[in-house]
């Protein structure tokens, strides 16, 4: 299974020195499929690799540099657009890591620009962004209504000249999800990172990433998201001895104790994330618990040709991800509407 191989090399890049060609082919295919090729390339920068592998890794590092430059420019453009309405630009996910120079941003694939804004300022932000050249991606009224009623973000918008998407979040998880993290508190605790940009606090960054990994997603691309959490934890814990205590405190305040704890257990098991166990004031350890093994099997479901294996398990997670976000009747209605239009959870 190449998912396991990828994880092993990310955890200990020196292992790459012993790979045979068939393993290299599987590793590269899995890393590309998981969008971790840039991260892998950065980690292997100082490791001796076969001559045929160097150009592949050099390309991936170059591509990641470009991704980063483009993401920072999009953030700059959003800040320019939103300057008039006075709402601070709080970056989420990849763009935040890149803008703040965090380890999680090194080599990371970024994609869309994600920002978090206060729910009561949504209309102002929407107007400012639409006035600066972004436009709605889908003119479909069902999808639009679905987003506005149930989701945690506006329907996606794309810039008509630069062809880049922006996702404007007003809360952390869909409004139908079981957990309701406190987005207002996250906004209040956001920190400035220069050039008119902000990001979440160290604890909230992990709460946000864990919420999306465990509570929201179908775990597609989960290894990458878990790698983010691994890097965020390592960096924060290195400068703050009591970091995991404050992390669990924040997680509890957001109602995200379970997702955060599970994310830490998975990261610790797969990436050897240095976590701290506690007996008091709270009791936390990181040995695997019920259900974790299914998550791990799902995360590592990738064969030597970069294909997702274990189709049934994947389907279970697809239904599960909708189940978590929506009450059952709503789920049935949503799937029905999607299927009538020919969408299938392949």
């Amino acid at each position: 299974m190449s998912g396991a191989l990828l994880v092993a090399v990310l955890r200990n890049p020196a292992e790459a020195a012993d790979l045979v060609p068939a393993e290299w082919n599987a590793l590269i295919a899995a890393a590309r499929a998981e969008r971790l090729i840039g991260t892998l390339a950065v980690l292997l920068q100082d490791i001796a690799v076969p001559t045929s592998i160097s150009p592949i890794l050099t390309d991936a590092r170059g591509e990641a540099e470009r991704e980063k430059r483009q993401a920072l420019w999009e953030a700059d453009r959003a800040a320019a657009a939103m300057a008039s309405c006075g709402v601070p630009v709080i970056l989420l996910k990849g763009t935040a890591y890149a803008a703040a120079g965090l380890r999680a941003g090194e080599g990371r694939f970024i994609g869309d620009l994600d920002i978090l804004v206060p729910r009561d300022r949504l209309a102002d932000v929407e107007a400012a962004i639409l006035g600066a050249g972004w436009e709605w991606v889908k003119p479909d009224p069902y999808d639009d209504d679905y987003y506005r009623r149930w989701m945690h973000e506006l329907p996606p918008m794309i810039h008509k000249e630069r062809d880049r998407m922006i996702d404007i979040h007003h809360t952390v998880l869909p409004l139908t999800a079981r957990q309701t993290p406190d987005a207002a508190a996250m906004i209040a605790n956001a920190i400035a990172i220069g050039h008119g940009l902000h990001m979440l606090s160290a604890e909230d960054r992990i709460c946000h990433a864990a919420a999306h990994l465990i509570a929201d997603g179908d775990l597609a691309g989960g290894l990458r998201n878990l790698w983010d959490i691994h890097c965020l934890c390592g960096e924060a814990a290195a400068v703050d001895e009591g970091f995991f205590l404050s992390l669990f405190e924040r997680a509890a305040a957001h109602g995200l104790t379970d997702p955060v704890w599970r994310a830490l257990r998975l990261a610790h098991r797969l990436y050897a994330t240095p976590v701290t166990a506690y007996r008091s004031p709270i009791s936390v350890d990181y040995s695997l618990r019920g259900g974790d093994r299914f998550f791990i099997a799902r995360l590592l479901a990738r064969d030597g040709w970069g294909r997702e294996s274990r189709k049934l398990l994947r389907f279970a997670f697809f239904v599960r991800s909708h189940w978590l976000r929506m009450p059952p009747m709503m789920l049935a209605r949503h799937l029905w509407t999607k299927w009538r239009k020919g969408h299938r959870p392949a």
Partner: peptide, 9 residues
């Protein structure tokens, strides 16, 4: 031609 490094455009 103008190449703008920050935007890549």
């Amino acid at each position: 031609l103008i190449y703008h490094r920050r935007s890549g455009q």
